[in-house]
Design a protein around this nucleic acid. Structure first.
Lengths: 99, 99
DNA sequence: CCATTATATCGTATTTTTGCGATATATCAA
DNA sequence: TTGATATATCGCAAAAATACGATATAATGG
């Protein structure tokens, strides 16, 4: 029994939805010299470049997605790597089925 | 391939989500002297009473839900009866699966 | 320590959403 | 036709979301 409202709110924005789509198949959308985007995750800067929003906005949106449980973030040195949380998306689908 | 953004926006509001939940099992949440809520649908006034929002707001929210395809409305005499559109919810779930 | 790079946070202007009251329209019943 | 009932639309104020630049924090390398 998750609370789906924060999740729905996080998803109801084109840019944030886009980020989540990209993170499904990182290698298709990102390439990095510093890491394996598929295993480590995608760092904030790569997302920022691709989405065309300011650094501060991207940072805020990622924080919001994380609070909603839709992504996980891991700090490694100076980078923060982001991964999709498939579990949360499955949970949302489950919640919508019994809606 | 539906456009899920209007649907997600329509769902990302507590009151509108509530309405949609109620409309899943109308007889559990509404009783009417003028119609069979299960077959005909639920009229705007009943929803208004239950949700505790103004008539104008409820009317607007229902229009929004309809535009998103989440409900269907049918005018019968002086009443507008609303039903959930299960098809749209299934379509959303499908879209989220391949997100 | 210092400069550089990466990310986070703060304050703010603009836009969108929320929700209302007033009013318009539509239907019914007498 | 007139008054009552049901719903829709309009205009607006308040709140929330969007997105930015400036600045703060954190880590790295020299």
């Amino acid at each position: 029994m998750m609370n789906i409202m924060p999740v729905l709110k996080a998803l109801s924005n084109e840019k944030r939805l886009k980020i989540l789509q990209w993170l499904k198949e990182p290698h298709k959308h990102f390439s990095s010299a510093i890491c394996d985007v598929e295993k480590e995750g995608v760092c904030v800067g790569l997302i920022e470049q691709k989405i065309g929003l300011s650094q501060s906005t991207v940072s805020q949106y990622l924080a919001l997605l994380q609070q909603a449980g839709l992504i996980t973030t891991e700090r490694k040195g100076q980078w923060t790597f982001c991964k999709r949380n498939e579990h949360a998306i499955q949970a949302l689908i489950q919640a919508l089925k019994s809606l």
